[in-house]
Amino acid sequence: YQDQEQRILKFLEELGEGKATTAHDLSGKLGTPKKEINRVLYSLAKKGKLQKEAGTPPLWKIAVS
């Protein structure tokens, strides 16, 4: 689980600052079920590491501290 968090954070960091992506996109790029990706995304957002942008589907990006 920790491993997934690292992979997602790394992927988003590599996208570049301010760039956002969807759970669907992450799921495809990382070869992980979207349900699992979503769980990790919401967990990271709760920890303040990610920012969720409203929309359908929601967009995710690295939180700027």
Rank of each mutant, 00 (worst) to 15 (best):
residue 22 T to P: 02
residue 12 L to I: 14
residue 7 R to S: 08
residue 20 A to W: 10
residue 20 A to D: 04
residue 16 G to D: 06
residue 5 E to H: 04
residue 27 S to V: 08
residue 12 L to H: 00
residue 48 G to P: 00
residue 65 S to V: 15
residue 10 K to F: 04
residue 41 L to A: 01
residue 28 G to I: 14
residue 3 D to R: 06
residue 40 V to D: 05
residue 37 I to Y: 00
residue 14 E to H: 10
residue 64 V to F: 08
residue 65 S to F: 05
residue 5 E to C: 09
residue 61 K to D: 01
residue 5 E to K: 04
residue 62 I to Y: 04
residue 2 Q to F: 10
residue 63 A to H: 10
residue 25 D to M: 13
residue 64 V to H: 04
residue 57 P to C: 03
residue 38 N to K: 14
residue 64 V to A: 11
residue 62 I to C: 10
residue 49 K to D: 05
residue 23 A to F: 00
residue 16 G to A: 05
residue 59 L to C: 09
residue 27 S to G: 06
residue 40 V to M: 15
residue 19 K to L: 06
residue 29 K to I: 09
residue 24 H to Q: 06
residue 53 E to I: 12
residue 55 G to Q: 05
residue 13 E to H: 08
residue 21 T to D: 02
residue 31 G to T: 06
residue 42 Y to C: 10
residue 22 T to K: 01
residue 7 R to D: 05
residue 35 K to H: 12
residue 12 L to W: 02
residue 29 K to S: 12
residue 38 N to A: 03
residue 18 G to N: 10
residue 50 L to W: 00
residue 59 L to E: 06
residue 29 K to D: 04
residue 20 A to G: 15
residue 6 Q to Y: 09
residue 26 L to F: 01
residue 45 A to S: 11
residue 4 Q to F: 13
residue 23 A to Q: 02
residue 52 K to S: 06
residue 42 Y to F: 08
residue 11 F to P: 01
residue 20 A to V: 08
residue 18 G to I: 03
residue 26 L to E: 00
residue 25 D to Y: 15
residue 10 K to R: 13
residue 56 T to E: 11
residue 15 L to W: 08
residue 4 Q to W: 06
residue 29 K to H: 10
residue 51 Q to G: 03
residue 51 Q to W: 06
residue 51 Q to T: 15
residue 52 K to Q: 09
residue 45 A to H: 08
residue 39 R to I: 06
residue 7 R to F: 07
residue 4 Q to S: 11
residue 54 A to P: 11
residue 6 Q to A: 13
residue 27 S to D: 01
residue 6 Q to M: 09
residue 31 G to Q: 14
residue 41 L to D: 01
residue 62 I to D: 02
residue 3 D to A: 06
residue 49 K to W: 10
residue 44 L to N: 01
residue 37 I to K: 00
residue 51 Q to M: 13
residue 36 E to M: 15
residue 11 F to E: 14
residue 2 Q to L: 12
residue 44 L to R: 00
residue 65 S to G: 11
residue 43 S to M: 13
residue 53 E to A: 03
residue 20 A to Q: 11
residue 53 E to H: 06
residue 55 G to T: 10
residue 28 G to T: 12
residue 42 Y to D: 07
residue 58 P to H: 04
residue 22 T to I: 01
residue 16 G to K: 04
residue 25 D to N: 14
residue 19 K to M: 14
residue 64 V to W: 05
residue 64 V to G: 13
residue 63 A to C: 11
residue 19 K to A: 15
residue 54 A to C: 13
residue 14 E to Y: 05
residue 3 D to W: 15
residue 27 S to E: 06
residue 54 A to M: 11
residue 51 Q to E: 15
residue 1 Y to L: 09
residue 42 Y to Q: 12
residue 28 G to A: 08
residue 51 Q to N: 13
residue 7 R to Y: 07
residue 45 A to Q: 10
residue 57 P to W: 02
residue 23 A to D: 03
residue 22 T to H: 04
residue 60 W to Q: 02
residue 59 L to N: 09
residue 28 G to H: 15
residue 3 D to V: 11
residue 2 Q to K: 14
residue 38 N to P: 00
residue 11 F to R: 06
residue 2 Q to N: 13
residue 44 L to Y: 01
residue 17 E to A: 15
residue 56 T to S: 14
residue 34 K to P: 10
residue 20 A to L: 07
residue 41 L to P: 01
residue 59 L to R: 14
residue 46 K to H: 08
residue 15 L to D: 05
residue 21 T to A: 12
residue 4 Q to P: 10
residue 31 G to I: 04
residue 32 T to L: 14
residue 64 V to Y: 05
residue 41 L to W: 00
residue 32 T to F: 09
residue 53 E to R: 05
residue 20 A to P: 10
residue 21 T to H: 06
residue 51 Q to R: 11
residue 39 R to T: 11
residue 18 G to C: 06
residue 22 T to C: 05
residue 26 L to Q: 00
residue 25 D to S: 08
residue 43 S to Y: 07
residue 16 G to M: 03
residue 14 E to V: 09
residue 19 K to V: 15
residue 62 I to T: 07
residue 16 G to F: 01
residue 34 K to A: 09
residue 23 A to S: 08
residue 8 I to P: 00
residue 3 D to L: 13
residue 1 Y to W: 06
residue 61 K to L: 02
residue 35 K to C: 10
residue 57 P to K: 04
residue 12 L to T: 02
residue 12 L to V: 10
residue 36 E to D: 12
residue 53 E to N: 09
residue 3 D to Y: 09
residue 29 K to T: 09
residue 15 L to A: 10
residue 26 L to T: 01
residue 25 D to F: 15
residue 5 E to M: 03
residue 52 K to I: 07
residue 63 A to K: 08
residue 53 E to Y: 07
residue 57 P to D: 04
residue 60 W to E: 02
residue 52 K to E: 03
residue 38 N to G: 05
residue 8 I to E: 01
residue 36 E to K: 15
residue 54 A to T: 09
residue 55 G to Y: 03
residue 8 I to G: 00
residue 15 L to R: 09
residue 6 Q to I: 12
residue 2 Q to T: 14
residue 38 N to T: 07
residue 7 R to I: 11
residue 54 A to S: 14
residue 42 Y to T: 11
residue 49 K to A: 13
residue 22 T to N: 07
residue 28 G to D: 10
residue 2 Q to Y: 10
residue 20 A to C: 12
residue 8 I to C: 06
residue 19 K to F: 09
residue 12 L to E: 01
residue 60 W to M: 00
residue 57 P to I: 04
residue 5 E to Q: 07
residue 38 N to L: 03
residue 14 E to Q: 14
residue 22 T to D: 04
residue 55 G to D: 04
residue 13 E to M: 08
residue 11 F to N: 03
residue 61 K to N: 04
residue 13 E to T: 12
residue 38 N to V: 03
residue 12 L to Y: 04
residue 56 T to K: 15
residue 26 L to M: 12
residue 46 K to I: 06
residue 34 K to G: 05
residue 11 F to T: 12
residue 60 W to K: 01
residue 45 A to W: 10
residue 61 K to E: 02
residue 5 E to R: 03
residue 53 E to Q: 15
residue 8 I to M: 05
residue 53 E to L: 13
